[in-house]
Design a protein around this nucleic acid. Sequence first.
RNA 1: GGACGGCUAGCUCAGCUGGUUAGAGCGCUACGUUGACAUCGUAGAGGUCACAAGUUCAAAUCUUGUGUCGUCCACCA
Length: 877
Amino acid sequence: MPKEIPKAYEPDKYEDVIYRKWEESGVFQPENLKNTKGVYCNVLPPPNSNGELHLGHVSGYVVMDLMGRYQRMLGKKVLLLPGKDHAGIQTQVVYEKKIKKERNINRHDLGRDKFYDEVYDFCIDRANYMRSQEKKIGLSADWDKEKFTLDPKIVKQVLKTFVDMYNEVDAQGNRMIYRGERIINWCPRCASALADVEVEHEEQQAKLYYFTYDKNFPILIATTRLETKLGDTAVAVNPKDERYKKYIGKIYQADFCGVKLEIKIIADRNVDMKFGTGALGVTPAHSAIDWQMAQENDLKIVKVINEDGKINKNFGEFSGKTVLAAREMIVEKLKEQGLIEKEEDFINNLSVCERCKTAIEPLVSEQWFVNVDHKNFSLKKEARKAIESGKINIYPEKFKDVMLSWIDNVHDWCISRQIWWGPRIPAWYGATINKKEKIYVGADKPEGNGWVQDSDTFDTWFSSGQWAYTALGFPGGDDFKEFYPSDTMVMGRDILPFWAFRMIILSLYRTGKIPFKNLYFTGLIRDEKGKKMSKSKGNGIEPLDMIEKYGTDAARLSTIIGATPGNDMNLSEEKIAGFRNMVNKLWNISRYVITNYELQITNYELNQKKLTSADYWILQKMFMLISLVTDDLNNYQFSQAGERLREFTWNELADWYIEATKFDSGTEKNKVLGMILRDLLKLWHPFIPFVTETIWKKLSYEDFLIISKWPDVKCYLNIKYAYDINDKNSLSDFTLVVHLIKAIRNARLENKIEPSRKVKAVIHAGECVELIRRNESLIKGMRTGIEELEVKKSGEEIVGEIKIVVADVIIYLIGAIDKEKEEARIKKEKINLEKQIKIIKNKLANKNFVERAPEMIVKQEKDKLGRLEKEIGELGF
RNA sequence: GGACGGCUAGCUCAGCUGGUUAGAGCGCUACGUUGACAUCGUAGAGGUCACAAGUUCAAAUCUUGUGUCGUCCACCA
């Protein structure tokens, strides 16, 4: 056994080496695992391969890796399947910025094909870098199977889904995927349509204008967007509004700043009578609600704003102007004519593009949509069923309701994007015959000439939404057959509507099965003040910097301990440093044990006659720890499991048991310590794989810790304890010794006895006399400063000395009293005891309590009162 | 407007299905080079568990209401 171990754990000396050895040994490949029972699979969320890993990725991967390692140790055939996402719009935005900055060009300068090729290379490059980061954090994934969303086999399936859904036609001829002119969210900068979920809302200060179209128009209306009024075809009022009832149904011709409008007055119950003037100018082409009204009232739809964010043709002097310029011109003109009655400051919600934060223009455009409530197969209803029935288990549970309410409110999903990066929609348009457009939808280009492919690409979530099965090699792949549906899916709570929902609906449609059995949401990681981390604010913590500084294990712990599932967590560098200390503590415990003992690592046959109080105690604690941590992990209580492990390692093992071994005379230490260290390393391994594997190696085990078997409580149960180890309230001998030692230390400090000063102690131990005698060396050795110890069953009260009472045991410290300080200490003790006694007496004086509370509880209180009164009596009150 | 979540020690948070003297880590105070660890040890101080009412023998824990901060959804023309 090696005896030379460095004082401090230095992660960078071991991490890369160990990771490489794991990889080389093939343990990340499920096929290489021996004697497995059952399978476990987690299809890892593919990060967008256009940047680098941030803390959010890390915290998610740590959870997944933790679960994967745990399941592997349970003996399952474990597959953690990694991948990368091409991330349509986001990557295009990133790359456009890059070429603008580096080469001062835009994508049109390159042309579609060249642009695509460059972005592809860029993604591969980023993917390589990000993979190295994923390895750095210890992810035990099967890299041989890594997938990319643009892998031909995967794209083929994505296109097939599109074709299948297009060909899904109900009795009325409605397709599940259809092309149509509808109002959509348009990002002028990305020059693309966006799905509803890709739009964010930001509050902004705006002006609300009260105006009429011309001097003959009878109704005053309010708007913030005067320029869109060029496309108004109606004015809507609430049907109950007495002010406007008489106008409903009438049609007015108006001259709005030189543009002829035909305005119909319509009634709609959604109009808020209290807002503005209670009358709303309806612009069907540029507002979702108005568009809806236009459908219901058969209104004309006049497009005002173009895809480039400028005013459409046919609007005279306004045509070609930007939205803002047109607005100013109209304000000017209306003012000249005295048609603006007033302007009000007003805060409204501006819609912006989730990716580039540009203001969204709602506009009518021809796009591809998924009908989420199709008659042949209602995606939303099927998804609801899968979740409600519990086939998909959502954790934490509160997200089940979030998911369901989201499902209920979902609209048809716009899946076409006018960008270049990503798989193209497999639709071809033929030469027009008889002015009717010919369309062909199919995976491959149709026969014949003149077919032109749709220039749009897919919403990236249409592709990543199929990841759960495409990544596993659907339909024929072995992994798909063996591992689908996967066991766990982990993602940040922010992408529930984007990803979780889409994966569920698309998987149900394509495979007829749920994509995964358990869906676990993590919270978001924020800075120490609870602010969102962002590069521009400079408050982000770079995971790789932290790993370099404190080690991967510390970084992993910092994202696990203190995190409540689904709740956001604040993280600071100090916190990570704290966990570095934790890792180092474990290192030093091991260092001490390894260098001081010839540890048994194979034979744990204990000679129970030789076990000491401390031995029994730590074995019991270990038994409890294994049971509880196992339960915690089975219930996704990672933080709690981590805290238990820290508590055991630091406060029980290091502070008490290891300290005790320095004075304890037991002969079984090499076996007990061998068992404890072995199992402790196993329990810690899923959390902090590197340091545990490093120590494991120093223990000269043949196999890697990563493929060792999860601890079994059986060997702890075989020990004959003097008390019930399943009862966590039962006091072991050692617990009393701990209380005694703490009380002695406290009394010394309170009496200001110099730490170096040795004293004599006399103990009147009553029934505990044998127990105290057995543990004499501990009581003397463990920083109590006791040199001479006299243990008796009972004796005369020793007056004028420090007197400590713990349960039935009385300790006198001889010749060290500081009268004043001792009095103060006793007084404090007394107040404390009295407080407790009072509480219990009050309870017992309450007739209702004694009568109605369970007998157990009443007895507990009575016993406690007896004990406390005895103690307080001993102290002389 | 709808919903959800937080509000517990100076800070970050645990406290599940009601019964503990309300806990942890960091920070703070005092002391300490004791044979792994100063990335350490020992001992402390510090909280009307946001507020109010209710249920109960018993409430940080359950119910209702209020306040406050935050998040999401819808949407404000």
